[in-house]
């Protein structure tokens, strides 16, 4: 499903002028099917407001733009949001805080119960098992446990299993690696790539972690004060470190090294992933010979 947003605007607290905040200002962007798309920006730049529009949790206001996702027109009042939400999964910040089921199984099956009431017990079990194994948990071991007795990382995996259990085509994640350690982060992105190779066609992540964006995303946008200020591949976005710095963002370590090497006259032209960067340096060092 293609995501097409045109001239989207949104104001919080429209009633009282003293309290109103312009969260989105004329945002237009298109995300093609198959992309691993990053959304970066400072806290309060409108990223979360933007992604919450994508599955109709925040409705598109009158005269404030349009959103089309596949055949769904979200600016249309008659849009079938329930069916849209089954195809566009959304993982919130700290998803482990939304767990509620008596058992892990119940919690993961919640989405099936809501979106696919026609599934019988057997079919449900197959789907739940598949989802839990997808996120790297042992189905037999965890299914009857209470989600609250699991570790933090396991809880997060359960929560994500609860979103992907209905096999959404588009997966939107809001700060998915916040609070994870480096190993946890790496594992998490490996999981996202695994999902991206199976039924999830498009991944959209909101992140503060510039290294993660450079390493994983095919394309990204930068939000600042409700506007899209920069759009392109990580390489294009981080080609000018001063601009990203002025927007209050950090930069990936590979971009920083590229800039510093340029200062001393070494030109490294890589895609800013760690592997790509190292390969490029090796090439330079060995003069092109392996």
């Amino acid at each position: 499903m293609r995501v097409e947003v045109k001239n989207l605007s949104f104001v919080y607290g429209q009633g009282a002028k003293a309290l109103s905040v312009r969260a989105l200002d004329n945002v237009s962007l298109t995300i093609e099917e198959g992309e691993f798309f990053g959304i970066i920006g400072q806290t309060g730049s409108g990223k979360t407001t933007f992604v919450q529009h994508l599955n109709g949790l925040i409705k598109v206001g009158k005269d404030s733009g349009s959103i089309k996702i596949g055949e769904y027109d979200l600016s249309d009042k008659k849009c079938d949001f329930k069916s849209l939400r089954s195809k566009l999964g959304m993982v919130f910040q700290y998803p482990e805080q939304q767990l509620f089921g008596d058992t892990v199984f119940d919690d993961v099956a919640f989405g099936i119960k809501n979106f696919m009431p026609e599934k019988n017990a057997e079919e449900t079990e197959i789907l739940v098992k598949e989802a839990l194994e997808m996120v790297g948990l042992d189905y037999q071991k965890v299914k009857d446990k209470s989600p609250f007795e699991l570790s933090g990382g396991q809880k997060r995996r359960v929560a994500i299993a609860g979103v992907i259990v209905t096999k959404p085509e588009v997966l939107v994640l809001d700060e998915p690696v916040a609070g994870l350690d480096p190993v946890g982060k790496r594992e998490f992105f490996a999981l996202l790539h695994k999902l991206h190779k199976s039924f999830v066609k498009t991944v959209i992540i909101v992140s503060h972690d510039m290294d993660a964006v450079a390493e994983n995303c095919t394309r990204a946008v930068v939000f600042s004060q409700g506007k899209v200020v920069c759009e392109g591949t990580p390489k294009e976005i981080f080609s000018d470190l001063e601009t990203t710095n002025s927007l209050g963002l950090g930069f990936p370590v590979t971009a920083y090294l590229t800039a510093r090497l340029k200062e001393v006259g070494v030109d490294i032209d890589s895609d800013l992933t760690v592997d790509g960067f190292v390969n490029e340096i090796m090439n330079k060092l060995c003069g092109g010979n392996e």
Binding site: K82, S86, G89, M90, F92, Q98, F110, K113, V163
Partner: peptide
């Protein structure tokens, strides 16, 4: 608000 949204995203009505 956040939890309601999260459950709505999972199809809660």
């Amino acid at each position: 608000d956040r939890i309601i949204k999260a459950q709505k995203a999972r199809g809660a009505d």
